[in-house]
Design a protein around this nucleic acid. Structure first.
Length: 485
RNA sequence: GGCCCCAUCGUCUAAUGGUUAGGACAUCAGGUUUUCAUCCUGGUAACGGGGGUUCAAUUCCCCCUGGGGUCACCA
């Protein structure tokens, strides 16, 4: 089969974590079947438009590595698009929706409605009070052709509604099996709004068909609107696509993942220093498991393993703690040049350092990072010796005199040490310790604190390697002064 | 509330009509170590309840309970 999937974000200015997973699954499924993946901008709600949102979305998809074959792209920072089925922005397709809606009205599958918002609201209120289902009462279905033409000609505000037929609607979901809903549950959904824009329901159906989409993979929150879409497909005579509704990603309290209970924007996570690779890997495993006991997968491995029948039905809590762990795993294992690139925005005050220096700091500190965002603070210590007290220099099993002696010995020893590699430094210091029969802690603790100014830090050899001879000696000297006074 | 969906450790999940129900995160206890982190070893921890079907159900069916989603001229 010729597979084609799609991802239709609304341009709200950020990419929701749940949308990231939806986009990724669509991408995985298309790749798995050598199919096509398209991105389409659903901007039919003019009230929620956000300036620059599409550009931002395109960039985010690019940084997380989700590529697509058709859709809006950026050329020299300007919006353009690629693919033979455009335009891929719904606000540029208004005529298409209008024609389709009118066609439906003409054949009797839809009808014009002139009811005011006030009347509709009043109707809903009454239905709510009477504990009835809130549904349009088909007040305008009775209108005859002449009256409709007359009011249309008088430029009265109108919408076009889908006429839901009697009976029930059944559809097949690739993940959940057959789902049946009585048509009496379905409202006569507005298809064309008074402002000339289509609603989501009309636009998706028309676009998915016109763009040749074969698989509609989206969040579970859409299940209840599938019957409307099925009725539309039938009314248009379009062949039915396949549906797959993904389980929701949840807050810790099991409600649908939302702002309020933490970050939901992919951009927020990227800004905090979560690696795109980690984010995508993590999110892919929320609702899908390739079998086996592994947690870390490359994108290609996920493509190879992806299978809709292995997608779970139940919602998955977004567990930040596990994301942190996975991010740490990626930071530690990822190619160092790639890490160096990714970490560029995160140096903070240390951003002015030379690249060679940064590479050393990164080599030392990456063992300790869970997010790249922590780097700025950790790097600060290399830039400037933090203030600390003389007591900090004293190892728990030794005293100040002992610390002072070792620091003085180190000061002289350093004159002859080759600082070009961590191994050489370690070898020289360990030799000093071994030759004299000292314990590691007697020497290493004060040395490390002298170099870092902190009770907790990277190891002394690493620190000396990064700081170099001059700064290293200065810091040791500072420590000696502190202890001597 | 109507309708729809869902149900294995705290969390993400694996497996099976017969298993000591497996792994990962978190947690606890050790180990490595100058500190922190990393890393290693081990432990605690789950089939929501009730009926069936069956020689045998966590697994298949039904009910209950619980959780969620959705009920707009928003997507």
């Amino acid at each position: 089969m010729n597979v084609k999937t799609r991802f239709p974000p609304s341009p709200t200015g950020f990419l929701h974590i749940g949308s990231l997973r939806t986009a990724f699954y669509n991408f995985l499924f298309a790749k798995k079947h050598d199919g096509t993946f398209l991105v389409r901008v659903e901007d039919t709600d003019r009230e929620r438009l956000v300036e620059g949102a599409v550009e931002s979305l395109i960039r985010t998809l690019e940084t997380v590595g989700i590529t697509y074959d058709e859709g809006p792209i950026l050329v020299n920072g300007k919006l353009a698009e690629k693919g033979p089925n455009g335009p891929y922005t719904q606000s540029h397709r208004l005529e298409i929706y209008k024609e389709h809606a009118q066609m439906l009205a003409l054949q009797g599958s839809a009808y014009y409605c002139f009811c005011s918002k006030e009347r509709l609201e009043e109707l809903r209120n009454q239905q709510t009070i009477a504990k009835l289902q809130t549904k349009y009462d088909r007040h305008c279905l009775k209108l005859d052709k002449e009256e409709i033409s007359r009011r249309l000609a008088a430029r009265e505000s109108y919408v076009i509604r889908l006429l839901i037929p009697d009976g029930e609607t059944t559809f097949h979901d690739e993940i959940r099996g057959n789902i049946t809903i009585s048509n009496s549950e379905i409202d006569d959904q507005v298809l064309m709004k008074a402002d000339g824009f289509p609603t989501y329901h009309l636009a998706v159906v028309v676009d998915d068909h016109l763009m040749g989409v074969t698989h509609i993979i989206r969040g579970e929150e859409w299940i209840s609107s599938v019957p409307k879409h099925v009725i539309l497909y039938k009314a248009f005579g379009f062949p039915m696509p396949l549906f797959a509704h993904l389980p929701l990603i949840l807050n810790a309290d099991k409600s649908k993942l939302s702002k309020r209970q933490g970050d939901v924007a992919v951009e927020d996570y990227l800004a905090k220093g979560y690696l795109p690779e980690a984010l995508v890997n993590f999110v892919a495993l929320l609702g899908f498991n390739p079998t086996g006991d592994r947690e870390i997968y490359t994108v290609q491995e996920l493509i190879d393993a992806f299978d809709l029948s292995r997608v779970n039905k139940s919602g998955a809590v977004f567990d930040r703690t596990k994301l942190d762990w996975m991010n740490g795993q990626y930071i530690r294992s990822i190619d160092s040049s790639r890490l160096f690139e990714l970490v560029k925005p995160f140096w903070g005050t240390a951003s002015g350092l030379e690249d060679t220096q940064k590479e050393k700091i990164l080599a030392v500190e990456k063992e300790r990072l869970t997010t790249l965002g922590e780097l700025a603070q950790r790097a600060q210590m290399y830039l400037e010796l933090p203030d600390y007290t003389a007591e900090t220099l004293v190892w728990k099993k030794a005293d100040a005199q002992d610390a002072l002696m070792h620091l003085k010995n180190l000061e002289t020893l350093m004159g002859s040490i080759d600082l070009s590699s961590r191994e050489l430094i370690e070898g020289a210091i360990k030799k000093y310790i071994g030759d004299n029969g000292y314990q590691n802690g007697n020497v290493l603790w004060p040395m490390r604190v002298a170099l870092s100014g902190q009770a907790q830090s990277a190891g002394p050899f690493d620190l000396l390697w990064v700081l170099g001879k001059e700064e290293g000696l200065t810091r040791i000297h500072t420590a000696i002064t502190k202890l001597a006074s």
